[in-house]
Design a protein around this nucleic acid. Structure first.
Length: 244
DNA sequence: GGTTATGTTATTTC
DNA sequence: AGAAATAACATAAC
């Protein structure tokens, strides 16, 4: 969402002339005339901040947007600005927030936020020792913004098997993983900015392990059944010692 | 044409 | 009641 925020920065300061769409819980009439104070992001969420409220956008799996254009589908939320330019959102989740964002979001958990605090992420990971590492990294309350691609890349690059249990991984290694999530998220943003999205995945959506050319495993792991791409040969599995 | 997929929340079930 | 499983949403690509 940071990528989208950057593209929308020209609209900051402009009043919304008209708001349209089929989003529930969005007061389209109230939006008209409101000046866009600023735009914020938290993980995969984007916020349009107005003087007395905010509008939250989450693209989920299928969300799309068009800047100064329309897509051939049902409009969820469209904002036209004073300059005549507009932003249109489709198939996304929109919410109206009347509470200050600081009361709802802890910016220190957002991997791309300047105030991200790795010590908090580490502590939260250690509070869930039974969790599988592949699920823990996707937990938005621990590492907001980390998605399935970044999860797979971070685990491969640190040679950690996705089915490893958090409690069996040392603090030093967990710390490395947290750091890697930040670096990988940062790198992903740079790829997007360079228009080279998808060209830098080492394992995500790939067939062969780049280290030794053997086939990668692709499996749905854990309660959330999200796909993990991994190499059993390169990635070490940390499990409790069952020899009693 | 069936399955899968950058994700999360609501509902149902136990 | 509360945890855990399942459904729901919505759309393009393989």
């Amino acid at each position: 969402m940071v990528f989208l925020k950057e593209q929308l920065e020209p609209y900051i300061g402009q009043p919304v002339i008209k708001a349209t769409g089929d989003a529930k819980n969005i007061p389209f009439d109230l939006l008209a005339g409101q000046p866009l104070i600023t735009i914020e992001t938290f993980g995969k969420e984007l916020f349009f901040i107005f003087p007395a409220f905010a509008v939250r956008i989450h693209l989920m799996l299928f969300g799309k947007y068009a800047i100064n254009g329309k897509l051939n589908r049902t409009l969820r939320l469209g904002l036209r600005f004073e300059s005549g330019e507009e932003i249109n959102f489709y198939a996304c989740d929109c919410r109206f927030l009347s509470e200050p964002l600081d009361n709802v979001y802890d910016w220190r958990t957002d991997v791309l936020h300047p105030s991200f605090d790795p010590a908090i992420a580490l502590a939260k990971l250690q509070q869930q020792p039974q969790k599988l590492i592949c699920e823990a990294l996707l937990d938005q309350s621990i590492l907001a913004g980390v998605g399935n691609g970044i999860k797979n890349e971070v685990l491969f690059r640190n040679q950690i098997h996705p089915e490893s249990q958090v409690g069996e991984i040392s603090a030093v290694v967990l710390q490395k993983l947290v750091q890697a999530c930040v670096m990988q998220s940062d790198a992903y943003l740079h790829w997007k900015q360079a228009g080279m999205e998808g060209e830098h995945w080492q394992v995500y959506k790939q067939k062969l392990c780049p280290r030794d050319d053997i086939p990668l495993r692709k499996e749905k792991i854990g309660k959330s059944r999200r796909t993990s791409y991994f190499c059993d040969k390169c990635q070490h599995l940390y499990l409790p010692d069952v020899t009693e």
